[in-house]
Amino acid sequence: MDSAWLVPAALAFGIALGAGVFAIVLMAARRGQRAADVVSTAVPDGVDQVLDALESAGVVLDPSNNVVKASPGAMAFGLVWHQALVHPELVALVDRVRRTGEPVTEELHLSRGPFGDAAIYLFVRVARLGARYILLLAEDRTESYRLEEVRRDFVANISHELKTPIGAVGLLAEALVSASDEPEQVKRFAKRLTKESERLARITQEIIELSRLQATDALTRADLVDIDHVVAVAIDQNRVVADSHRINLVSGGDAGAEVFGDETLLVTALHNLIANAIQYSPEGSRIGIGVSQRDGIVEIAVTDQGVGIPEDELDRVFERFFRSDPARSRNTGGSGLGLSIVKHVVQNHGGDIRVWSQPGNGSTFTIRLPEANRAVGASLGAHA
């Protein structure tokens, strides 16, 4: 065999073999990198910082649906527990996106956390994040749903509240016509007609007042208000009703307290608290109205010895048209707006209102307002 061609052939074979080995090594390296990518839990650059900055919920999941990154909001909403999504509904959305590759958007009603009874409403969007990860974003819509529910309740309640006196006025007017030849009947129906028309006027006025308090210009001018005078006027306005129920109204505490605000509105708020206390107090009992000053805050407390409020209703007493005892309220002509008006008056003055109560042992409603010498005028336009 001629050795002249063996050297080039061997050289060519060596080059080919080396190229093959290099290709194998390169493929192995690439496969190794892909395997490392699968094992790695690192999310794409910048995603960590974005999730940390989110006020809403954000979650990044790997191909096994393990949570590799979650925003503080996701933890607060109870969406993640033990590095996994809590809710099957969210897992189903993630699986659908992984299967189809298309982003999805849904509104979901979920429980807060794995064991929670509280409900949350979330606007959820799920989409791919690169080739491996799934990004889930959730915006809390719970407050929007709650406000919508309050609005529906308000419309329903106001329709009911107005329908009763309006219907009564119509029936009494017809009765007056029928009893035109009976003077005593006319007097009786006329008296009831006057009472129902007054009730209708009172509800309408309170609705107007509440709407005005919720407006942006509810407190356009703030004057120096003497709290002693506010207490005296509010007590005087309720004196006749209290006396008719043999209820003793007693005032006391620190004298000389002053706040910045609208005296008429503050009198209305305190009047409503005292009237509410009278309404739920037994005859022959006592209602105390006390004023105190401390740490730059003026407190006006109204304490009764009435029926009290169940603990599960304490958070609702300031809602419009809410009544702890509907039968008693309707019998006494209550509209269910009094405490809501109190809340908005106080908030418009930069303060807050608190309630303590125990069934059978009475209640205490406390208005807290910034003291005049420390109040900041600019804060008086704060609204609920």
Score class of each variant (00 low, 15 high):
P114H: 08
E149W: 04
P165D: 07
V150F: 11
I158S: 15
A131E: 08
F115E: 05
P114R: 13
S144G: 04
D153L: 10
V126C: 04
Y145V: 14
L122T: 01
V155L: 13
T105K: 03
I166C: 08
G113W: 02
L129I: 06
G170H: 10
D117E: 03
R98K: 07
L122D: 00
G130L: 04
E174M: 14
H109Q: 15
L162W: 12
V150W: 10
L171G: 11
R152Y: 09
G113I: 02
L171A: 15
E106S: 15
L136W: 10
R128K: 07
D140H: 13
L162I: 13
I158E: 09
G170D: 09
F115V: 08
E107I: 12
P165V: 07
A173S: 14
R128C: 03
L171F: 08
E139A: 07
F154A: 13
E143Q: 13
S111K: 05
P114Y: 09
R125S: 10
L172M: 11
P103M: 07
G130A: 03
S111E: 01
E148N: 12
I134R: 01
R132I: 05
G130F: 06
V126N: 01
G113A: 01
A131I: 08
L147G: 01
V126P: 06
T142F: 11
L136S: 09
E149I: 04
A118S: 04
E106N: 10
T105D: 04
E139S: 07
R152S: 09
I134L: 06
A127C: 04
E107D: 10
H160T: 14
L110P: 03
S111W: 03
H160G: 12
F115H: 09
E106R: 15
L171H: 10
L162F: 13
E107V: 14
R151G: 01
H109T: 15
R141H: 14
T100M: 05
V150Y: 10
E174P: 06
R151K: 14
G130N: 03
E139K: 06
L110M: 05
S111T: 06
G116D: 02
R98Q: 04
G170I: 12
R125L: 02
L136K: 06
E161Y: 11
E161V: 11
A138L: 05
V104K: 01
R112V: 14
R99I: 05
F115P: 01
R151I: 13
F154L: 14
F154P: 04
L122V: 02
A173E: 05
A168F: 09
T142Q: 03
G113M: 00
A118D: 04
L135N: 04
R146W: 11
L122R: 01
G170S: 13
R99Q: 14
L122S: 00
L147C: 02
T142D: 03
T164R: 13
R98N: 02
F115L: 07
D140E: 07
V169K: 00
T142V: 10
E107R: 12
R132W: 02
A119I: 06
V124W: 01
F123T: 01
P165C: 09
L122E: 00
E106D: 13
Y133M: 07
G130Y: 05
R132P: 00
I158T: 14
F123G: 01
L129A: 03
V126I: 03
A173Q: 09
A119C: 00
L110Y: 08
